[in-house]
């Protein structure tokens, strides 16, 4: 088969905008997952709105300024940020077909994510033992719902990550494994974006 038998000459490679044929699977998969992530952002926007509305209603209970320890929040933030970084480096290693480096970088992601969860659950347990549990006031209900939902997302992200590492070990870096890995990276980076909103609105503004 020669070029002359084709009656059209694509002027560009497929980019998902009609020209050059169908979009590459990588772009279609990422777009679909992106839509899911945006729906997750909408879910969080409802929780952020609830927290913003209720944050002043402490019902005579402890306020954010009395409860929050900004030093541990800063450590949590750095854990998530660096885990996003190692997750990105892991994704690069996967694209370059380096499974060893992929596993090392994502073991770090796993450790940093687990450290974040341990600090957060210690903080929650300390608040509950001080009588500042979710049932104490509307402020604390909103706080535990918003920050807890983010924590649940981080937990499911870690489960997702363990599952992906197992797939890379068992199947290698095949095309469909790479597509799932792309979804995991998007999910993990999106969690970090939500956390920027959480530490700004809840902790930094609440501790003032």
């Amino acid at each position: 088969m020669t070029v002359a038998t084709l009656d059209f000459v694509p002027t560009e490679l497929a980019r998902g905008r009609g020209g050059g044929g169908p979009a590459p699977t990588r772009i279609v998969v990422a777009y679909g997952f992106w839509i899911f992530l945006l729906s997750d952002f909408v879910l969080f926007s409802a929780l952020f709105a609830a927290y913003a509305v209720l944050s002043g209603n402490t019902a005579g209970g402890p306020t954010g300024a009395e409860l929050f320890n900004l030093r541990s929040v800063f450590i949590e933030t750095m854990c998530l940020l660096f885990s996003s970084y190692t997750c990105g480096l892991g994704a690069l290693s996967a694209e370059r077909r380096q499974p060893g480096r992929f596993l090392v970088f994502n073991a770090l992601t796993l450790l940093l994510g687990a450290a974040f969860l341990i600090i957060e659950s210690t903080e929650f347990a300390g608040m509950v033992s001080k009588g500042a549990g979710p049932s104490r006031s509307a402020f604390l209900s909103g706080f535990f719902t918003l920050v807890g939902t983010h924590g649940v997302h981080v937990t499911s992200g870690l489960i997702f990550l363990v599952y992906m590492m197992a797939q890379v070990v068992a199947k290698g870096l095949r095309a469909h494994v790479l597509h799932r890995l792309l979804c995991f990276s998007l999910f993990w980076h999106a969690l970090d974006i939500i956390w920027v909103g959480v530490f700004t609105l809840v902790y930094l503004m609440g501790a003032r």
Binding site: A14, L81, S84, Y85, L92, E95, L178
Partner: peptide
């Protein structure tokens, strides 16, 4: 159609720059 070779879309440098700025 739609099956493509993976080409690296980013570099270590861009992730590191992002980390620094963040």
């Amino acid at each position: 159609p739609g099956v493509e070779e993976y080409e690296p879309t980013a570099s270590y440098l861009s992730y590191t720059a992002g980390l620094g700025l963040a």
